[in-house]
Design a protein around this nucleic acid. Structure first.
Lengths: 200, 200
DNA sequence: ACCTGAACACCGTTCAAGT
DNA sequence: ACCTGAACACCGTTCAAGT
């Protein structure tokens, strides 16, 4: 069967993977179209056969990152179907761990590096799907009396925002040593989440 | 008296101002050392007499942004000395409004654009000073029974993180239309803050 | 001390050309 | 359809030179 045309059967995905690897090793500032092409073993103009511009590659990398995040989140939620409160706690832990393990992918997913995310349907879709998953858990928590009544979407934004904000501040080195010296990021996030849940 | 040597008496500050203006007009992606120099009316290598590299200019711009933010925050707090709860609400509103009014300055202050913030003492100082101001208000709220007892630093991280996270998600277009269609950012932040305060 | 202009390595993007 | 290589405009940074 057709082994490979030039270098890959699927250069598009090879480029996305190369991008994620560069992100992990050299950070956001090191992510260059030409480097990505080099790492994938093609000329610097080859990527343009698959992505109209650098923004599009970043969108594809972010989308892949969101897919991984969704998978982890979903697994954490499914592992705790008996207890909505535990679903929220485990989901939050998974989200936080993803940010710690894939710092620069996380940063690029939520950084202004991607300027017009609305132009990338796959990105919008998985990001909405992820949010919906959070809303589901919030609803379950409300039914169980763990979260107060009210718009589950608004409450989800509130909870997601808090978790996301603490992680962001931590990744940017904005959390004072006084606090980070005594608590891990996971502990701080967990403490914050605890505050939002009904105490009984 | 010495009017000006070449172009300015103070090219350093002129460059910082030019940077902030470019940020406001062209966004983070448009911020280029060469553009900053052009706007300040000097050659593209002139900035190197005042900043060792682009990172340093970004640090200076971020520091200036933090100074402005601190001023607004401080004013909001001082305008409500009688009521700690109102201090927190007004401070949060000022923080949020700064992010809305100076989106790209805000982004660069907290984005990974500044990679080694610890290397810039002025930046670290004003950022710590800002955090301390929040801690002060949290303490006052605790004394007034508006915030539960516990480490004021940890609680400050929690509150700041939530406000910061909601703003960040909003600026990145990550808050679903379903929610943003019904509430302004100020309303969402205000709702979230209300959740964190004791209801009496 | 402060600024200029040429130079270098690197980048994103385009395009004619090859298979 | 997929890829290459030359070309262009732009960038960050360096450095010898000017005042």
């Amino acid at each position: 069967m057709t082994e490979k045309t030039y270098h890959h059967g699927d250069l598009k995905n090879a480029l996305i993977q190369a991008g994620i690897e560069i992100l992990a090793k050299e950070g956001v500032a090191g992510l260059t179209l030409r480097k990505v092409a080099r790492r994938a073993g093609v000329s610097h103009s080859a990527p343009y056969a698959h992505f109209p511009d650098k923004q599009s590659l970043i969108a594809a990398i972010s989308t892949e990152g969101f897919n991984q995040l969704y998978t982890l989140l979903d697994a954490a939620i499914l592992a705790n179907t008996a207890d909505p409160r535990q679903q929220l706690i485990a989901g939050t832990r998974a989200y936080t761990q993803f940010a710690i393990d894939h710092t620069d992918t996380f940063k690029i997913m939520f950084s202004s590096a991607l300027e017009k995310e609305k132009e990338y349907p796959a990105f919008v879709e998985i990001s909405q799907k992820t949010f919906e998953r959070v809303v589901d858990v919030v609803r379950a928590c409300q039914s169980a009396g763990v979260i107060r009544p009210g718009s589950p979407e608004l409450l989800a934004v509130t909870i997601w925002g808090q978790v996301h904000g603490i992680i962001s501040l931590a990744l940017e080195g904005q959390i004072p040593h006084l606090v980070l010296g005594e608590h891990s990021i996971q502990e701080i996030v967990s403490f914050a989440l605890g505050q939002m849940l009904q105490s009984q």
